[in-house]
């Protein structure tokens, strides 16, 4: 019962935060509020017992994307541009797609339904076999690390390569800028020392 009301409250909070994100015009406040949004969404995942999803949401949504948005904000004006025309077409498209998604959601099995198709395929085998085989208490960790080990290795390689590329690009630019600045400073000091002499 407590869980249900906590969920209701958190989802209502998400709606309120989204409303303010749409209404506000100061970009930095919008970035801060979207950080709060994903922290709240992560709290919902914790409440639904999906702790690993909550970790990802908190790390990516609240941590990394806030910092990325802020890095992008340095190249943007501080206020959102004043909008004079209202895009009716996009609004109606959004409403139609949202309604279709809501209608589709009625077809989903209930939360925690043991007869849902996702729970009948390989899940019982994982739950029964995984602990005696590998002795890892968390089933999700067990599936990711043991049953799908190669898949996870591939994912880690992809993420590592992407991170390496981003670091090379960003660090390369700042390093060269720093060298240019050092050279300029050296030129200046040389000139002043010559003038002094």
């Amino acid at each position: 019962m407590v869980e249900f009301w906590v969920n209701v409250f958190l989802v209502a909070l998400l709606v309120v935060i989204t409303f303010y994100i749409i209404r506000l015009k100061t970009l930095i406040a919008i970035v801060a509020l979207s950080g709060a949004y994903s922290l709240t969404a992560a709290a919902i995942f914790v409440n639904l017992d999906a702790v690993d999803v909550a970790f990802t949401e908190a790390a990516v949504g609240s941590g990394i994307s806030t910092i990325l948005f802020l890095a992008a904000l340095r190249y943007l004006p501080l206020e959102e541009a004043h909008q004079t025309r209202y895009p009716r077409l996009s609004l109606s498209l959004c409403i139609i797609v949202g309604l279709m998604l809501i209608i589709a959601a009625f077809e989903l099995p209930n939360f925690g339904d043991p007869n849902a198709p996702a729970h009948l395929h390989v899940a019982p085998r994982y739950i029964e076999e995984s602990y005696p085989l590998f002795h890892i208490p968390n089933v999700v960790t067990n599936v990711l690390a043991s049953y799908r080990g190669f898949d996870t290795l591939g994912e880690v390689v992809v993420v590592f390569t992407a991170g390496l590329g981003v670091i090379t690009l960003l660090a390369g630019s700042t390093l060269s800028m720093r060298f240019v600045k050092i050279e300029n400073d050296l030129d200046k000091t040389n000139k002043t020392s010559k003038e002094d002499a």
Binding site: I28, V31, G35, L39, A59, S62, G63, T66, L70
Partner: peptide
Amino acid sequence: LNFLGTLAI
């Protein structure tokens, strides 16, 4: 994470 986000802002 909360601390890091605030620090970044």
